[in-house]
């Protein structure tokens, strides 16, 4: 097996990595994290085992970049029990699924990560546990809990 042109890696995995970064970091910081992730990936790419799981490799780099960002920004959102009230409609169209992304921001970091790695990147729980430094069972629980909270706040909101 040989390494594909990196352009193909960006085309095939760029959108997924962006979704993961957005889910974990929010829209604002996601693009910086994505850029750092792909630049680091481009640097290391010639040494990558052509048989490696590229998506898992990229998510691992993104996770590291996200940690750096959290450290530098020191603005880890705290888990809260009550969600803020939905702003009233005043005729101005809201961004698509804006509330969902807001609700996501309020989840504990580990749940956001577990949910993103599982449901957006499609990684197996064994890899997610490795990334999160917990057990497979804990990773599965975190993803499920996160999704459950989102369902409550997001779909419960829809008339």
């Amino acid at each position: 097996m040989r390494l594909k042109p990196f352009e193909q890696i960006v085309t095939e995995h760029g959108p997924t990595v962006l979704r993961v970064c957005r889910a974990v970091l929010g829209h604002h910081d996601a693009e910086d994290a994505w850029s750092e992730t792909f630049l680091a990936a481009l640097r290391a790419y010639p040494e990558l085992d052509p048989a490696a799981n590229v998506e898992a490799w990229l998510v691992t780099i993104a996770k590291r970049k996200a940690i750096d960002q959290h450290r530098s920004a020191a603005r880890r959102p705290l888990p809260v029990d009550d969600l803020p009230e939905r702003p009233g409609h005043d005729g101005i169209p809201e961004p698509a699924d804006g509330e969902l992304w807001e609700a996501l921001k309020l989840l504990p970091l580990k749940q956001r990560e577990a949910l993103a790695y599982r449901h957006l990147a499609g990684l197996p729980y064994a890899s997610i546990a490795g990334l999160l430094g917990n057990s497979e069972a804990a990773a599965r629980r975190a993803a499920a809990d996160g999704l459950k909270t989102l369902r409550k706040s997001y779909q419960g909101d829809t008339p």
């Binding site: 959108p15 979704r19 850029s35 698509a96 699924d97 969902l100 996501l104 993103a116 989102l150 779909q155």
Partner: peptide, 18 residues
């Protein structure tokens, strides 16, 4: 659904990042 909504593509952002 929720995963579907979070998976939506953003071509503008992808182009910008490229």
């Amino acid at each position: 659904g929720i995963v579907g909504a979070l998976s939506r593509n953003d071509d503008d952002a992808n182009r910008r990042l490229h």
